[in-house]
Nucleic acid binder design. Structure first.
Lengths: 222, 222
DNA sequence: ATAGGTTGTGGACGCCGTCCACAACGAGGA
DNA sequence: TCCTCGTTGTGGACGGCGTCCACAACCTAT
């Protein structure tokens, strides 16, 4: 619900002042209901009350605006998740607390995907190319806030003894894959429109698989 | 590489004969390189050598064409996976064979996502609303071929004793979530452009998590 | 006061989806 | 045999889109 100039299509000054930000905000609202395809140059400029071409002073391209909106959507996802995770009150047991955090991560991710489908889709609409080509330091800080949140939760799991340290590297990727995959199946895929009771079971099942499967033994011979 | 009339933009007969199929095939080629957004009415009709409006005799809408192309992409995914899974030669051990099948499922899925990014994205571009709203029989046949393939692999895992029977229901959804999520992260998400060596490790790790985590005990107290 | 860069405007182009009226066709009845 | 009539493709038009170009308004530094 950012305020952009749809209310006041005429501004008094010739200069807008902060057109770039205004366009991104308009784009975010467009994306909120309508997803990435709905972030359209002319619509954004119209909402800001500015000529279509004005956008080209701040974005090379439609795709450039989409990228900016995509980044904004990612940070809205990050904020929503942080807010939800901050409300988590630790229980007595440190191990249980760490596990709760991981589950809360999944729950927050899925909640955002459900309640902000348009923004969620938009957040993943432009490939972000983490770690340019040959960076093997993927376990480290990636600049992606939700990703960092997940990383911390996994670190806690290790320091508390639930997750063996040798199983830590790469764990964020498989965890993220599982949760993200469920989110996609839920909002765009075949799980869309399925009873909440059923999907809740699947979600619970998925989190169990992650918790248990993450610390799987490398050697299996059963 | 289906043959459509780009070669022969003028047909001799006024009637085309099978315009609907031709348009879908053209749409598939469009989607193959370019994804769902590239399946465009005018481009498809152009390739078939027909006036833009001719499409409206066979599709209500652009979205209707997209739906048809989406279905075609899904079945191409299904065919590719079946072909790859059929080549699997069973090893002596029945349990190992069942596990191999599950891994092969994941590998085939990811291979298709990588080699046919456009079609893969297209296959999931239109929500398919499995099991209209309140169907709790989700464990059953869903009409989605790759999904059935996965179901069979999981059934084998149960009948061979690797997966406890009480862990079977819902297993396809969590498995599919994990594999699909990795596919998305790989082609559109932050794992895009990351070294193959690294992503191969992540893939291996993911499959281990699935195998081990699927049969997790409901009661955990460690 | 003025010169020059920055930012927004206006108009045009080509592509898109879609609507409407019309033309070509082919099958069934006179 | 011809004529009708439903089906399928055509032609033209409209508005919306992204984008380009030339121009105007504005701010700032001199």
């Amino acid at each position: 619900m950012a305020t952009f100039g749809a209310d006041r299509p005429k501004r008094e000054t010739y200069r807008h002042g902060d057109l770039r930000r205004a366009l991104v905000e308009a784009g975010v609202e467009l994306a909120r209901d309508g997803g990435p395809d709905a972030v359209v140059l002319r619509a954004a400029t119209r909402q800001v009350g500015v000529a279509p071409n004005a956008a080209y002073r701040h974005f090379a391209d439609r795709r450039a605006l989409q990228r900016a909106v995509c980044a904004a959507a990612q940070s809205e996802l990050a904020r929503a998740m942080e807010a939800e995770l901050d409300e988590l009150t630790p229980v007595g047991d440190a191990a249980a607390t760490a596990r709760d955090r991981l589950r809360a991560f999944g729950a927050a991710y899925l909640r955002f995907a459900r309640t902000e489908q348009g923004l969620f889709r938009t957040a993943f609409s432009v490939p972000t190319d983490m770690a340019g080509s040959t960076n093997p330091q993927l376990a480290g800080n990636t600049g992606n806030p939700p990703f960092q949140l997940l990383g911390r939760a996994l670190d806690d799991l290790v320091s508390v003894g639930v997750l063996p340290a040798d199983r830590r590297p790469g764990a964020e990727f498989v965890t993220w894959s599982a949760v993200h995959g469920l989110a996609v199946l839920l909002i765009d895929g075949p799980l869309r429109g399925v009873d909440r009771a059923v999907t809740d079971d699947i979600e619970e099942r998925l989190m169990e698989m992650i918790e248990y499967g993450l610390r799987n033994p490398i050697t299996r011979q059963d």
